[in-house]
Design a binder for these strands. Structure first.
Lengths: 225, 225
DNA sequence: GCTTCGCCGTTGGTCAGACCACTATAAACA
DNA sequence: TGTTTATAGTGGTCTGACCAACGGCGAAGC
């Protein structure tokens, strides 16, 4: 890896070394890494290099730096990374269309996985969020958080954290957009019913029907774009 | 953004500023950013901070630093990031399972989108990659790059860049695993046939059949875990 | 006139040392 | 025993210096 014929920075080499270290020691989330000083001595490089390597790794979520305390191994979460990258997505109109289509695939996949996993607690929570959503609608308020929470809980019901993170990123993106145009009361009420249909179908473990209901629910979004 | 009541690093603030700058100026890949010196003067922080921010962004692929030249806006590719993060995924048995299941959803979604989009050029390229894959297999070599290229081209055939990136994030990871255990010649040959079946089904615009063929193709992976 | 070569300014890469801010820990205290 | 305080260690930021790579420009050569 650190062979010649490679004109890379020291920072890159150092971050590779630290990653190797994590693997060799089989460290997990929360484990404490050597301090900056120790890394400097062990690797024989300047503090600048070690710090730049660590800062990069921190932004990737690989490590977590705590001031005055030390450096810890971070979780395997995708979120910090995707957040860093998605900041440019709204540049493109086209990107929006793509996001809608991508979301469709993810939501349909989610109902399938949710049925396979069948987490009763999550299904109950989906009921709860839908109930609260109905309340908000009755009060004439836009049920944005509730709607989002419903879908997030669905992704959580898959029991697949990777999938949850991946989907969460896409869904979060829609929240920002929806804050501007609140849907009408009628369409919100319709959404509540559609949510209920999805839940019912999942409870019945009917994959085809659940997908159909979700498809119906998402159809207006497709047209909107 | 840089209000008080937020105990974040200067580096974070600076990298946010630079991202804002990219958005405000509507900069695209390859555009040149201000030099370190200019950023230092404009933001009123030390070189250390600016450099740490830039280094982090470089590792995320947001910018590309060229020694002796300057700083450029990077592409929207998720690849560089994936490499930085996925190095620990295989530690987790569960993460592996999640990845396999997630990939299944994404691949099935891809064939559906590919049929909807129907990009002949991409389909031809899938044929081409599959042909090269067959050649490699005949030579007794592991057709890793070709296999990966085939699937990537499938994702590209969706005409959906977002989906391509999202999927690339997941499926690239499987390459590294496969580099270790090369599949047997028989299983590779089987893969080639399965790929062909997928292509045929897409060309026939038969969504159900294409999904079925893809499901068959991915089945061994599910069991492997 | 055109090309080639080499100088030099700019830019990023690395280093060393200093000082500040924060945290955990342990010693001193009530 | 429980609280407060002192302290040592850690990361955060700054400065100034030197090195290495690149680009541009002018001089030399064709």
């Amino acid at each position: 890896m650190l062979n010649s014929s490679e004109k890379v920075n020291l920072s890159h080499i150092v971050s590779e070394r630290i990653k190797e270290y994590i693997l060799e020691k089989d460290m997990r989330e929360g484990d404490k890494l050597p301090s900056e000083k120790q890394l400097i001595d062990a690797l024989g490089v300047s503090r600048t290099v070690v710090r730049e390597a660590l800062k990069s790794m921190e932004m990737l979520g690989i490590v977590k730096i705590k001031t005055g305390d030390g450096i810890y191994v971070g979780g395997p979460s995708l979120k910090p990374i995707l957040e860093q990258v998605s900041f440019r997505w709204h540049q493109d109109e086209r990107k929006m269309t793509e996001l809608v289509k991508t979301r469709r695939i993810l939501e349909l996949g989610a109902v399938e996985m949710a049925i396979e996993n069948y987490d009763v607690a999550c299904l109950d929570r989906m009921d709860e969020w839908n109930r609260r959503m109905a309340e908000k609608v009755d009060q004439g308020l836009p049920p944005i958080e509730e709607d989002l929470a419903f879908h997030e809980t669905l992704f959580r019901a898959t029991g697949n954290e990777t999938y949850l993170e991946l989907s969460g990123l896409i869904s979060d993106f829609f929240l920002k957009i929806r804050t501007q145009h609140f849907d009408s009361v009628e369409s919100s009420r319709k959404s509540v019913d559609e949510h209920q249909n999805v839940i019912d179908a999942i409870r019945a473990k009917d994959v085809a029907r659940a997908k159909r209901e979700m498809e119906i629910h998402l159809a207006p979004l497709q047209k909107f774009i």
